[in-house]
Amino acid sequence: MQQPNLLEDRSGLYHHAAKSGLVFGLFWIIKYLCVFGIFRMPLFMGLIYMGLTIYVPFMAYSLTKKYRDSLSSERFSFSHGWLFGILLYFFASILVTIPHFIFYSYILPANLPQILDQMRSVGFDKTLLRAIETSMNEISPIKRALGDISNNTIWGIVFSLPVAILLKRNAPISNNTNQQ
Rank of each mutant, 00 (worst) to 15 (best):
Q3M: 13
S11F: 08
I139P: 05
F159E: 07
S62Q: 09
S150G: 09
F84R: 08
R40K: 10
R130P: 01
L13T: 12
F124T: 07
Y49N: 03
Q180N: 13
F36N: 02
P109V: 13
G147C: 09
G81H: 00
M45Y: 07
S140R: 09
I98M: 00
S140D: 13
L33P: 04
Y55M: 14
T64W: 02
N178C: 07
T97P: 01
L167V: 07
E8W: 02
K126A: 10
T134V: 11
V56D: 01
A17Q: 12
I149L: 03
F58Q: 00
M50Y: 00
V163H: 08
V158A: 03
M41L: 14
S73I: 09
L7W: 12
F159P: 03
L6A: 05
M1A: 05
I157L: 14
A92F: 06
E74V: 04
V158L: 14
M50W: 01
I102H: 02
T64P: 03
G21A: 07
M1V: 02
L129R: 02
V56Q: 03
N152W: 11
A164G: 04
K65A: 10
S70F: 06
G12K: 05
H100R: 09
L116E: 06
Q2P: 11
V122A: 04
T53V: 08
Y55D: 01
I98S: 00
F36W: 07
A110Y: 13
S150W: 13
T127Y: 14
M136F: 11
D117K: 09
S105A: 13
L13E: 11
F84Y: 13
H16N: 06
Y106I: 13
I149A: 00
A171I: 15
G123Y: 11
I157C: 11
